[in-house]
């Protein structure tokens, strides 16, 4: 006869040194968060994305051939931006209050899970979702651009032959035209652009996580995070405004405080230039990465400072 034991057995789990931050537990929490968000059917957005970009790609709305490529990339990146910002804020804002409301937080934190692990795990889940979604959208965009590229090259060469110079062309010039088309096509800088977008979304997620540790409702978290995102794009403007208006030391001080405390999100806006052919160097890309990671770490740290003492 087999007997089922409620609670007896060998090798109790507590022999594992669990007070350390455990990558396995982080992964367990991140994966659960990812699956939770995926089962909320967030990826339906991807279908909308593909439909939108296909429409832009198929429609002959643009006069210049290069503009067609630019349009595909712009709409793709615009949709990516929309997706990552909306999900970074709303998904992150949802997590903590819902866990608290459903008491899931009690069951998780009554296990040997340090609070910092819970925070990082949940954040990683959102970041994972963003990564998968961005990768999928980026891939779809690349396929479309690659598909359109030969036609655009052909159009540019035709233009060169019949239009701009008004006479015959040399191989050198045809190559120049092709290079011009390539400048608007796929490049490694596009990878940096999507990475910068991902970093920006990660910073926004970390900020939202921090706000959700203070806030009493998801709505407050969403509104406050949107405000931070808004102000985060105005760093240069804030500095310039005080320079222009010379509002005295008090105004200057407030401006500087805003600039110091709020993350500079416009720093990550390299997409615009990359789309129109400017390339981002490896060094600058690394620096951007460093800055993004710094922001994420900073806001996770302050979130932990609040959360570690939070009465649940």
């Amino acid at each position: 006869m087999t007997e089922t034991h409620a609670n007896a057995g060998t090798a109790p789990a507590h022999v594992v040194p669990v007070w350390e931050v455990s990558p396995i537990r982080l992964w367990v929490l991140a994966r659960a968060t990812f699956v939770q968000l995926v089962r909320m059917k967030v990826f339906y957005f991807l279908l909308i994305f593909v439909a939108l970009v296909l429409v832009v790609a198929a429609a002959g709305l643009f006069w210049l051939p290069t503009e067609h490529l630019i349009a595909i990339k712009r709409w793709s990146f615009g949709a990516m931006y929309l997706f990552t910002m909306v999900y970074s804020i709303s998904a992150t804002a949802l997590l903590l209050p819902r866990d608290l409301e459903d008491r899931t937080l009690y069951t998780i934190l009554s296990k040997p899970v340090p609070r910092i692990e819970y925070l990082i795990g949940r954040l990683c889940g959102v970041l994972l979702l963003n990564a998968v979604a961005l990768a999928a959208m980026f891939l779809a965009m690349c396929l479309l651009v690659a598909w359109k590229m030969p036609a655009v090259e052909q159009q540019l060469v035709q233009q060169l032959l019949h239009g701009a110079a008004g006479e015959a062309v040399s191989l050198n010039e045809v190559n120049q035209a092709k290079a011009e088309a390539a400048r608007y096509g796929l490049s490694t800088s596009l990878l940096w652009a999507v990475w910068a977008l991902y970093l920006k979304a990660s910073v926004v997620s970390a900020v939202t996580l921090f706000i959700s540790t203070i806030a009493s409702s998801s709505l407050f978290t969403i509104v406050s995070s949107a405000m931070v995102v808004f102000i985060g794009h105005f760093h240069q403007l804030i500095l310039d405004f005080w320079k222009v208006n010379e509002t005295g030391w008090f105004g200057g001080l407030i401006g500087r405080l805003l600039v110091i405390v709020f993350p500079n999100l416009s720093l990550f806006d390299v997409v615009d230039e990359v789309i129109t052919g400017t390339s981002l160097s490896f060094g600058a890309g690394l620096q951007l990465t460093g800055m993004g990671l710094f922001y994420v770490a900073l806001f996770v740290l302050v979130a932990q400072l609040v959360f570690v003492d939070k009465e649940l």
């Binding site: 109790p12 789990a13 507590h14 669990v18 007070w19 008491r103 009690y106 069951t107 009554s110 296990k111 040997p112 899970v113 340090p114």
Partner: peptide, 11 residues
């Protein structure tokens, strides 16, 4: 955190 190694909780 170590105190929760040997605890189970049903809220």
């Amino acid at each position: 955190v170590g105190s929760r190694r040997d605890v189970g909780f049903l809220p």
